[in-house]
């Protein structure tokens, strides 16, 4: 039986998406959560390519990874937080 590369790549990307989604929940640091969230968005964008929806994939990457996650990072970084490994509030 010939190896189905499409299926293999799809399974890999889905696994990465699920793993990153779990990492979003389990990260202690909020910014790390956003980084993994961006990875989830990116993988979902790739799965759209497998559905033959290239336009949706490009727009998904442009809006969700390029804008929404950056907006979340802004929100996190402009709120009060402690510097890493210290008690001092900034």
């Amino acid at each position: 039986m010939p190896l189905e590369w499409d299926l293999l790549i799809f399974l890999f990307i889905s696994a990465v998406a699920i793993g990153a989604a779990l990492a979003v929940v389990w990260s202690k640091e909020v910014v790390r959560s956003v980084v993994f969230l961006a990875l989830v968005f990116l993988c979902i964008g790739f799965t759209y390519v497998f559905l033959n929806a290239e336009y949706l994939a490009v727009v998904q990457i442009m809006i969700y990874v390029g804008a929404v996650s950056v907006l979340m990072l802004f929100g996190i970084m402009l709120t009060k937080r402690r510097l890493l490994g210290g008690d001092r509030c900034e």
Binding site: V59, V65, G66, S69
Partner: peptide
Amino acid sequence: AIFSLVPF
């Protein structure tokens, strides 16, 4: 679209 990934 790839250009817009840089600020992240």
